[in-house]
Amino acid sequence: MKSLNKVLIGTMLSMGIVSGAAAYTIDDNGADQFIGANQNVALADNLDVYGNAGIYDVFGMDVSSDINNLYVSVYTNFNPSLSSFDYGDLFISTDGWNPFGSAPYKEDGFGDGETWEYAVDVSSRSNGLADVVDVSLSNGFDVTSGLSSRIFQEVTVNRSGQDKVGDAGIGIVTNGLTTLSFQIALADLGLNALNPQEIGLRWAMTCANDITEGSYTVPEPGTLALLGLGLIGLSLRKRAKAC
């Protein structure tokens, strides 16, 4: 049995499943992760965070899925109680991720690049639930404007005239680092875990001082590999016990 465990752990290490270092599915660390058009000279050097990074820095998001749900966790220094701004909404594109321009996408703004089909409406959070809103049929975005930060960036969904397609579990933990965790039914997004599909994800606070945005494939190949590895391990363990 010890040899079996060594084989499983070794395989997981080789696949990058076990790691001591922090890593994000969508990483937002570094000046090359700018994302977001602006009309502010101070941002000409592709700064990742506008203003105080200790208040506004977004580190990235972890994304995973199973047969039923999509799971997203956003990690940031941002806490509305320490600012005059609020949490933005989680935007989801179900037809891939197509930002405007080339990395670090400093030309990308509202009206260019990705069009978002859904949003988890964080602003309506109550009883641990947030709405999943269909924004594909009209201009369902609120954007930053008239601010000294990145302008013309979609930050929240405008619920007026939008259809609710489901509920999403949401948890917000503020303990130094803020973690916003979402659980969204794949069926509510028109996704199928048995059919690999690239999706786009985006989150920012309402001032858009930092934006994290990128893509994820449902189902994530690494997740399915881990599941298969686990099943193999269980099968071998049962066989060893039978002997």
Rank of each mutant, 00 (worst) to 15 (best):
S3R: 08
L4F: 09
G10V: 13
L13D: 11
S14W: 02
S14K: 14
I17M: 14
A21R: 12
A22W: 04
A31K: 04
D32N: 15
Q33C: 05
D45L: 05
N46K: 09
Y50D: 05
G51L: 02
N52T: 12
D57V: 00
S64C: 12
V72C: 08
S73I: 11
T76V: 02
N79D: 13
P80H: 03
D86Y: 01
G88P: 02
W97Y: 15
N98H: 15
F100A: 07
G101W: 03
Y105T: 07
Y105E: 12
G109I: 05
G111R: 10
T115M: 10
W116H: 07
Y118A: 04
V120A: 13
N127D: 14
D131K: 10
F141C: 03
F141V: 01
V143I: 12
G146C: 08
L147W: 02
L147V: 10
F152C: 04
E154Y: 02
D163W: 01
D167F: 13
D167K: 08
D167L: 13
G171W: 08
L180A: 04
S181K: 12
L186Q: 10
L189P: 03
N195P: 03
P196K: 08
W203F: 15
M205K: 03
T206K: 00
T206V: 03
T212G: 01
S215D: 13
S215M: 10
V218N: 05
P219K: 06
L229S: 05
G230N: 06
L234Y: 14
L236M: 14
R237H: 11
R237L: 11
